[in-house]
C-alpha cells in the first residue's frame, strides 16, 4: 500500500513540474512586466532598479526556483488588470465556485446513478427509452446553451428563479456561503443544473452499460439460481461491482466540472474563479492566468491521486495484482 502511494505521488510530480514551468514561462516571457509596472515616465536607472528588485537579472533557474517557492506559499504577485494580489482575488472567488461545483456533482451523482440503474435493469420500458434520448440530447447540447434555455424558461418566461449572481451570501470567517439564505439557494439552482447536466448524462450512460455487463456474468446467474430476491441481486451483487468505474469517472468528471464552471459562471455572471479567469484571458492578465493554471493543475493531480487510491481501496483484485511485478 505504502509503495503504491509513493509511486503514484512520484508520477504526479512531473505533471506539476511541467505545469509550473509553463506558467513560469508565461510569467517571464509573455508580455513585459517591467513596462507594465513602470508606466509611461521612467529613467533608465529606475528601470534597472526595478529589474533588480524583481530579480529579473538573475539566471533562469534561480528565477524559476523563486517562482516555485512563492507559488508554494500562494504568492503570485499582482493582477495587471485589478492591481490587487492574485492570491487574495482567488481566495475571494473560490467559495462561489466550490459551492457551485459541489452542488453540480451532487446533482449528477444523485440523479445519474439511479437513472443509470433503472435504464440498465428495465431496458425496454418507455421511460428508459425516453431517458436515453434525453441523454443523447444532453451530450449534444453545449453547456452555455443549456444555461441560456434554462434562463429563458425559468427566469424570463416563468420568472421563478434569478438568472445572475449569487443572491445574498453569509460570511463565515473568510468563506462566503450562499447555502444559508433563501435567495442564495434560489440563485444556485439554475447554474448547478446547467453544470451538472452533462455529467449526469455521462454517469447515467456509464452506470447503465456497466449494469448490463455485470448482469450477464456467471455469479449473477448463480445468485439467481440460489433463489435470492431481485433486490438483493441488483443492489447487493450487481451494483457493488459497477461502482469501481463509476468512482473513477465521477472523480475525473469533478475536474471537468471545475473546467466547465468557467462557461456556466459566464452565462450566469456567477462571481467565481471561472469568471475571474475568463476576464483575465480577455485582458491578457498573465499573473491571474498563471495562478489559475497552477491551482487547477494541483486540483487535477490531487483528484487523480485520490481516485487511484479509492480504486485501490475498493477493488481487492488490484492489491493482489500489484504484488506481481506490475
Amino acid at each position: 500500500m505504502f509503495s503504491f502511494i509513493v509511486s503514484r505521488i512520484l508520477q504526479a510530480l512531473p505533471v506539476m513540474f511541467v505545469v509550473s514551468l509553463i506558467s513560469f514561462a508565461m510569467f517571464a516571457y509573455v508580455g513585459d512586466p517591467v513596462a507594465i509596472m513602470l508606466g509611461q515616465d521612467f529613467t533608465e536607472a529606475q528601470r534597472a532598479a526595478l529589474v533588480r528588485d524583481l530579480g529579473l537579472d538573475e539566471p533562469f533557474f534561480v528565477q524559476f526556483a523563486k517562482f516555485i517557492g512563492n507559488a508554494v506559499q500562494g504568492e503570485f504577485g499582482l493582477s495587471y488588470r485589478l492591481s490587487r494580489p492574485v492570491a487574495e482575488l482567488i481566495a475571494e472567488r473560490a467559495p462561489a465556485t466550490l459551492e457551485l461545483a459541489l452542488c453540480a456533482a451532487f446533482i449528477s451523482l444523485c440523479v445519474g446513478v439511479p437513472m443509470g440503474i433503472y435504464t440498465g435493469l428495465f431496458r425496454h420500458s418507455w421511460l428508459s427509452r425516453f431517458l436515453l434520448t434525453f441523454s443523447l440530447i444532453g451530450v449534444s447540447l453545449p453547456t452555455f446553451l443549456i444555461g441560456i434555455l434554462l434562463i429563458l424558461v425559468f427566469s424570463v418566461w416563468l420568472g421563478w428563479l434569478p438568472s445572475f449572481g449569487r443572491g445574498d451570501v453569509v460570511r463565515i470567517g473568510w468563506w462566503s456561503s450562499g447555502f444559508l439564505t433563501v435567495s442564495g439557494l434560489k440563485a444556485l439552482i439554475l447554474p448547478a443544473i446547467t453544470l451538472g447536466l452533462l455529467q449526469l448524462t455521462l454517469i447515467m450512460r456509464l452506470v447503465r452499460s456497466e449494469m448490463m455487463e455485470v448482469l450477464r456474468t456467471d455469479y449473477i446467474k448463480f445468485a439467481r439460481a440460489r433463489g435470492l430476491p431481485n433486490r438483493a441481486i441488483y443492489f447487493g451483487h450487481a451494483l457493488k461491482n459497477t461502482l469501481v468505474p463509476v468512482i473513477t469517472i465521477a472523480g475525473l468528471q469533478l475536474g471537468s466540472i471545475i473546467a466547465f464552471a468557467i462557461v456556466t459562471e459566464t452565462v450566469f455572471q456567477w462571481p467565481g474563479m471561472g469568471l475571474l479567469f475568463i476576464q483575465s484571458v480577455g485582458a491578457a492578465d498573465i499573473p491571474v492566468m498563471a495562478a489559475y493554471l497552477m491551482m487547477i493543475a494541483a486540483v487535477f493531480v490531487t483528484i487523480n491521486l485520490v481516485v487511484d487510491l479509492l480504486y485501490y481501496a475498493v477493488d481487492p483484485r488490484l492489491r493482489v495484482g500489484r504484488g506481481r511485478g506490475h
Binding site: P14, M26, A259, F260, I262, F277, V281, I286, M289, I296
Partner: peptide
C-alpha cells in the same frame, strides 16, 4: 499530461497566451 486537463481549458489557455503575447 495534456489529457489530464479538459481540452476546453487547454484551448482557453492557448488562446489567452497568444492574446498576451
Amino acid at each position: 499530461i495534456q489529457l489530464t486537463f479538459p481540452s476546453i481549458l487547454v484551448a482557453l489557455l492557448v488562446d489567452g497566451v497568444v492574446r498576451a503575447a
